[in-house]
């Protein structure tokens, strides 16, 4: 199983699409590692700079609704994976992106808007999130305090994460 948790990157905008996560011109690579320098290269949010050291040190992304919409490119989870970000927490996800995350043994955690708002209250205060995978709980800590919240995963998605991904799961079962 992958390691989950660490410093948080807050992306305060809905509908962040996979073209913004990794532009199509980089889909010509044949290894995941080659994607690494191009994470979130075309994302436009005020104050966001993709090569900022704080961005590169992040391990968890917290964002809004419909995260990962658009293209089916698994290069989107991959560019996070090679940058050591294995968790995205959002109000909702586009279906293909969400499935790609679990298929890679990564976590796409959906939480209600109120819970996401609580997480965003820690923005700008050096926030970190710890994930307790077994109990479906996460704890956010920052200069503004600490709070533990519960989340829910589908049993299948949890099984994929435990197995290390869909290829491993499917190969053992079908």
């Amino acid at each position: 199983m992958k390691k989950f948790g660490g410093k948080v990157l807050f992306l305060d905008r809905a509908d962040i699409n996979t073209d913004e996560i990794i532009p199509a011109k980089y889909l010509t690579v044949n290894t995941k590692e080659e994607l690494k320098p191009h994470m979130l290269e075309d994302l436009k949010i005020d104050g966001f700079a993709p090569r900022d050291p704080a961005v590169l040190a992040s391990k968890v992304i917290v964002s809004r609704a419909n995260f990962g919409c658009g293209s089916s490119r698994e290069h989107a989870p991959w560019v996070f994976e090679v940058n050591d970000i294995n968790v995205v927490i959002a109000t909702s996800f586009a279906r293909i992106f969400r499935q790609n995350m679990f298929n890679c043994g990564m976590l796409a955690i959906e939480m209600p808007e109120a819970a996401i708002n609580e997480l965003f209250e820690h923005k700008g205060a050096e926030a970190a999130i710890a994930i307790d995978f077994d109990t479906d709980k996460l704890t956010i800590s920052s200069g503004k305090g600490s709070k533990t919240l519960s989340y829910q995963l589908m049993e299948f998605d949890k099984a994929l994460v435990k197995a290390g991904g869909w290829v491993e799961f499917a190969d053992a079962k079908y």
């Binding site: 658009g70 698994e74 499935q99 790609n100 079908y174």
Partner: peptide
């Protein structure tokens, strides 16, 4: 492995875009 695979639903099919891992398992299994 292409999000616009939904096009083929025009024929009364269930046609879905998927990522590379789903495609890989589709090819294999």
């Amino acid at each position: 492995g292409d999000s616009h695979t939904c096009t083929h639903g025009a024929f009364g099919a269930f046609a879905a875009g998927v990522g590379t891992t789903d495609l890989e398992v589709g090819i294999l299994k």
